[in-house]
Simulated assay, not measured.
Amino acid sequence: MGSRRYDSRTTIFSPEGRLYQVEYAMEAISHAGTALGVLATDGVVLAAEKRTASKLLEQSVGAEKVYLLSDTTCTAVAGLTSDANTLVTYARQQAARYRTTYGESMPVEQLVQRMCDLKQGYTQFGGLRPFGVSFVYAGYDTHRGFQLYTSDPSGNYAGWRANCIGANSTNAQSILKSDYKDEITLSEAVSLAVKVLSKTMDSATITSEKIEFATLSLDKSGRVRFHSYSPEEIEGLLKKEGVNTQQPEEEK
């Protein structure tokens, strides 16, 4: 009952020093599809669960959970897709302006920080609400090599070796914590991401319609290569990892 006096506006602190609207936004994300990232020595893998797996949905309309922000940075999202689209567009604009101004790709952490500055502003002014979306960022720059970050609606961000956001994130992080190892390769990171999704997704089976996969690595010439897995590649990966892809009759 007491919280009702303080949760109607973003800018009002409760006596305990809490901003309830920000906490409500984080709670909304905890019910969204899982998104995770794993940092390897030779790349980064992003994986995400798609919740809109309907027979009537046109699957070729584009990415729903994994987006390319610049030629060196990509992200996976958990939360409101509409909010994610707005922030992804903003990030792409910032990265493009940086390249136009300085003639090189925007450093990964600087792009993440720019995004978080915008999100923090939406927790500070009246008439606004926090963005109901969290991000897992994967990127590469010559300053710090491959990097993995996450950010939340409050504008906080942190660097990680492996992390998960969205539904079942607690269980997913337990698996990542126990199975992640130093000097992990990109292929091992992909296998770990598949294992985490197979053990934490609510569905009994995993298919290419229910997940998105992407990797960031360097090609032979040293250029950053973003690879978004096609449905056929995802099916092949799931079979390789021994994941059950046969749907029960009630799900068909």
Rank of each mutant, 00 (worst) to 15 (best):
T185W: 10
K177A: 07
T205V: 15
L176I: 10
A172K: 02
K181I: 13
K199H: 11
L176W: 10
D202E: 13
A189T: 09
A172S: 14
A193P: 03
S187Q: 12
E183A: 14
S174T: 11
A189G: 01
D182P: 00
T185F: 05
A189P: 00
L192A: 07
S178Q: 06
K181C: 12
A172Y: 02
S178N: 05
V194P: 02
S191M: 11
V196S: 06
L176S: 05
D179W: 00
V194D: 06
K177L: 06
D179A: 07
A204T: 02
A172W: 13
K195L: 13
K181Y: 06
Y180C: 09
D202Q: 12
S178E: 09
A193R: 06
K181L: 14
E188V: 09
L197E: 06
S203G: 04
V196I: 14
T205P: 03
V190K: 10
L186M: 07
A193G: 07
K195S: 13
L192V: 11
T200F: 01
K177C: 01
D179I: 03
E188G: 04
S198K: 14
M201W: 00
E183V: 00
L197F: 12
D202M: 10
K181S: 15
D202S: 12
M201P: 01
K195Q: 12
A172H: 04
K199E: 12
A172Q: 06
S187M: 03
I184W: 05
L176Y: 04
D182F: 02
D182T: 13
S198D: 15
L192Q: 03
K177G: 02
D182W: 05
K177S: 12
A172M: 10
K177V: 00
M201H: 03
I184P: 06
I184L: 15
L192E: 09
V194G: 08
A189I: 03
D202C: 04
S174A: 13
V190N: 03
S178D: 11
L186Y: 10
S178K: 04
E188Q: 15
Q173V: 09
T207N: 05
S187K: 13
V190A: 05
E183C: 05
Y180N: 07
K195R: 15
I175K: 08
K177H: 12
V190H: 03
D182L: 11
I175L: 15
T185C: 08
V190C: 11
I206C: 01
D202L: 08
E183I: 00
S178A: 11
